[in-house]
Design a protein around this nucleic acid. Structure first.
Length: 354
DNA sequence: TTCCCGCTGG
DNA sequence: CCAGCTGGAA
């Protein structure tokens, strides 16, 4: 059975023994020092400089108050998700974070449990049949994530002896791992003191401490600095903080209709004090419809393929029944092939890759 | 219908 | 920087 060696059970001090500012700066320096395919925002200034020294002290003080409220709220209101409370491995945390990218936790839970019992570690996933991996991804959405996760497993198994690395840069270099996922693994699996930044956290922190909506688009330097300034100095508190703020953003401090009556931070919330200016303000990303899009057509093709017995193929004629627009259908078949999600057989039939 | 909101590649 | 990628719940 899996032993509890992640999450708060392995909380330990920052290895560098540096202050918050230095930790943050170190991460940036290291990221800048090595050549990388994934770009990362360069932190020119310390978080304190970015928000201003005086402002930083004020924020730290209200963050300490917020931490007390959040800790209580976490105990009574947090969801009992199966990867929490040290019940899985670092690899299990990585898998759940990748599954959670753009996908609600509630939908992830059953897939994660089935996935982890089938492939409990990176090595077993690396050895799995591609078609099985795509099949197990089921209807989670964005199936390219399944292939990237398997590529990630191959790297971890081959280059890291089946042990997920603990360095930010090494994590960032893995397929399907970006800033959010790397930080989430460091905080939730390894108990490091790292500011985890996703849109839930950006929204909650921006509202509670700055009193403004976090507008869409990439994370601003101010938002990043804010996240580091309010992050509790003690490691184990920082892990709780990341989890609780994220949970708060998901359950209470939602985008359009925040449940302020249930919010532990309401008494001190700057956004509430300001009268919630521009609540639910425009996301920079324009809405992308789903119905009738290539994504929907790709989804139905894969759904049909998953329903087939192992090794089964879908004829082009059968695929035509899934999409009235022949041009769109062929475009989607080609893109699925490009992505490595299907194989084209002689005669234009298709199947899940071997 | 509206909302969800990270990684990748260009 | 920005467009593209799913599918289900509210």
């Amino acid at each position: 059975m899996v032993t509890a060696y992640c999450g708060q059970s392995t909380v330990r001090p920052c290895r560098s023994g540096q202050s918050a500012v230095r930790c943050c700066a170190m991460v940036s320096d290291m990221a800048d020092a090595s050549p990388r395919t994934k770009s990362r925002k360069r932190a020119q200034a310390t978080p304190e400089q970015t928000v201003g020294e005086r402002r930083a002290r004020e924020l730290e003080r209200s963050a300490r108050q917020a931490l007390r409220e959040l800790a209580t709220w976490w105990q009574t209101s947090a969801r009992d998700l199966p990867w929490r409370y040290g019940r899985t491995t670092p690899w299990g945390v990585l898998v759940c974070e990748v599954m959670s990218q753009q996908t609600q936790m509630s939908r992830v839970v059953p897939y994660w449990e089935a996935w982890m019992s089938q492939w409990p570690d990176a090595a077993s996933l690396a050895a799995a049949e591609k078609s099985e991996v795509i099949r197990a991804w089921g209807r989670l959405g964005y199936p390219r994530r399944a292939l990237r996760l398997q590529e990630c497993a191959e790297v971890v198994a081959r280059d890291y002896d089946d042990r997920l690395p603990r360095e930010y840069d090494e994590l960032m270099a893995l397929p399907s791992v970006g800033d959010y996922t790397a930080s989430a693994v460091l905080s939730f699996a390894y108990g490091e003191r790292v500011a985890v930044i996703d849109t839930n956290i950006r929204r909650a922190l921006s509202r509670a401490f700055l009193g403004v909506e976090s507008l869409g688009g990439s994370c601003t330097p101010l938002e990043r600095a804010l996240a580091w300034v309010v992050l509790p100095k003690a490691v184990e508190q920082s892990v709780l903080w990341n989890q609780a703020v994220m949970e708060l953003g998901a359950l209470v401090c939602t985008a359009k209709a925040p449940q302020c009556e249930q919010c532990p931070l309401q008494p001190q919330c700057e956004f509430v004090k300001a009268g919630m200016p521009g609540l639910g303000e425009k996301r920079t990303r324009p809405r992308q419809r789903f119905h009738g899009t290539d994504r929907q057509v790709r989804g139905s093709i894969l759904q049909a393929l998953r329903a087939l017995p192992a090794g089964g193929a879908l004829t082009h004629a059968q695929a035509e029944g899934l999409c009235a627009d022949a041009v769109q259908l062929d475009r989607c078949i080609a893109s699925l092939d490009d992505d490595g999600l299907i194989e084209i057989l002689p005669g234009h039939a298709m199947r899940l890759p071997a």
